[in-house]
């Protein structure tokens, strides 16, 4: 037994360095990222409020011609795709852009948390927010009468598409955040969100677009995700490899470019 010590100053800082186990560092960082995302009002507007309003608003009002069948069957997969875009791309681009601008990435770079650990933590936090989004959107859609005719394999394929899209959007977000100024990232990421909301088959059917534009739009990752989800969830179609291939290709290109051009400061 050492004699009890009052909290005198001496000894408090006696060096005892050492890194925590990697899983503890990643878990702590992911929890921090998740809390910051869920606390950020502007991000919640993009990730939760707008998707839910679009889903509910256009499901109950016949403003849009969405083809035969219940409107919610068309809208729910598109809004799920928008939710993935909003968190993995728009939110990550803006958040990371400002973290870079305020020296947060630099400061974290001086801690024992490795860069790969930071990426893992960010990905976990994005998946955490997406889980909340998917639960809220599916519950809202179900309340509006959505009953997808999807089997276990369809759902597994839908989840695969969501994971591929998350990787793809995150890579593109980091590419943008790691190369542009924070203010430019803020503007560009919001612009991309609005443009893809209109073009990407989220709430407007792609086949209403002019014929010349359609092949271009169908090669976009957001369209691949929304069309792919819609095919298996709304139409009960057999999973087609095309959306997965498009998303995987974008993810690979985005990851290579982000790894090459991302600047930490």
């Amino acid at each position: 037994m050492t004699e009890p010590r009052t909290s005198t100053a001496s000894g408090l800082f006696t060096p005892a360095p050492g890194a925590a186990p990697p899983h503890r560092m990643v878990a702590a960082q992911a929890a921090m990222e998740l809390r910051i995302m869920l606390r950020n009002g502007e991000q919640l507007l993009l990730t939760m409020v707008i998707p839910l309003l679009l889903l509910a608003g256009f499901s109950v009002t016949p403003v849009l011609d969405l083809g035969p069948g219940p409107r919610v069957d068309f809208l729910a997969p598109g809004v799920l795709a928008l939710a993935v875009l909003s968190t993995a791309f728009t939110g990550q681009a803006i958040g990371t852009g400002f973290e870079r601008r305020y020296g947060v990435l630099k400061r974290l770079g001086a801690t024992p948390l490795p860069r790969g650990g930071l990426l893992a933590a960010k990905t976990l936090a994005v998946l955490g927010v997406q889980l909340v989004q998917i639960v809220l959107i599916c519950a809202t859609a179900a309340a509006l009468g959505w009953s997808p005719r999807a089997g276990a394999w369809d759902i597994a394929y839908a989840l695969l598409l969501v994971l591929l899209a998350t990787a793809c959007f995150t890579a593109l977000a980091l590419l943008m955040a790691g190369t542009l100024r924070a203010e430019a990232t803020l503007a560009a990421a919001n612009l991309v969100y609005v443009v893809l909301l209109g073009l990407g088959g989220v709430i407007f059917p792609v086949d209403r677009l002019p014929g010349a534009v359609q092949p271009v739009v169908e090669a976009l990752p957001i369209t691949a995700l929304s069309q792919g989800l819609r095919a298996v969830l709304a139409e009960g179609a057999a999973p087609s490899p095309w959306p997965a291939v498009v998303l995987a290709a974008w993810a690979a290109v985005g990851a290579v470019l982000a790894a090459r051009f991302f600047r930490w400061e």
Partner: peptide, 19 residues
């Protein structure tokens, strides 16, 4: 070097948890 939305105690606990 600190995220603008992180709380003071939260940030210090995070950095502590890396050690």
């Amino acid at each position: 070097g600190v995220p603008t939305g992180a709380r003071a105690g939260e940030w210090l606990r995070l950095v502590a948890s890396f050690h």
